Simulated scan of single mutants.
Amino acid sequence: MHISFPSCAPEYCGPDLALTFPARVDEQPVQCAITAEALEDHFGARSPREEDLIDAFTAHRSEIELAAQRMLNELGGKPVLLHSGYFRFCT
């Protein structure tokens, strides 16, 4: 399975308090997301405000994409949502 991440900016999803970002698995688009809680707990986001979440994501993008890649491999290329618990127990 070949996984890559386009370099576009993440998108804020207010109702879910998460950021979404695209991946490509074997050239097919797959949506990934990380919760505001994970960004606050593990990547230094100061609040669940869009600007703070994007700043934390940008500063730690490579770590977040690596976690998403691991999860995509585990789930066979299906969409992933990275929660705080994933980083607490799996990294």
Score class of each variant (00 low, 15 high):
T58G: 05
A45M: 03
E11S: 00
F5Y: 03
G44V: 01
P22D: 02
A36E: 04
A33T: 07
S47T: 09
A9Y: 09
P22I: 14
F21R: 05
E11T: 13
F89Y: 13
D52E: 14
T58Q: 07
I3D: 02
P15K: 02
A67N: 11
R70F: 13
R46N: 09
D52F: 08
C90Y: 12
E37S: 04
P6D: 10
E74L: 15
A18C: 07
A9F: 09
L82N: 14
T91D: 06
D41V: 10
G77V: 11
Y12C: 04
A67F: 03
G44F: 00
M1P: 13
D41C: 00
C32N: 12
C8V: 15
G77C: 11
H83D: 08
I54A: 15
L53G: 06
I64Y: 06
R88W: 05
L53I: 03
M71E: 12
G77H: 10
L82E: 04
P22F: 13
C13S: 08
Q28C: 14
A59C: 07
N73H: 11
E74M: 11
R49Q: 03
A45F: 00
F5C: 02
T20G: 00
L82W: 05
A23H: 01
E40D: 08
V30K: 03
A18G: 06
T58E: 10
P48S: 13
L75M: 01
L19P: 06
T58Y: 08
P6C: 10
P10E: 05
E40V: 14
Q31M: 08
K78M: 02
D41M: 13
P29W: 10
K78F: 15
N73R: 15
A33C: 12
H42S: 05
K78E: 14
L66Y: 06
R88M: 02
L53V: 14
L19W: 09
F21C: 15
S84N: 02
A56T: 00
P15N: 01
G14A: 15
N73G: 15
L75N: 15
I64S: 07
I34T: 11
H42N: 08
E65Q: 12
P10C: 04
N73I: 01
G76P: 07
A18S: 13
F21N: 12
F43E: 12
E11P: 08
R46L: 01
F87R: 05
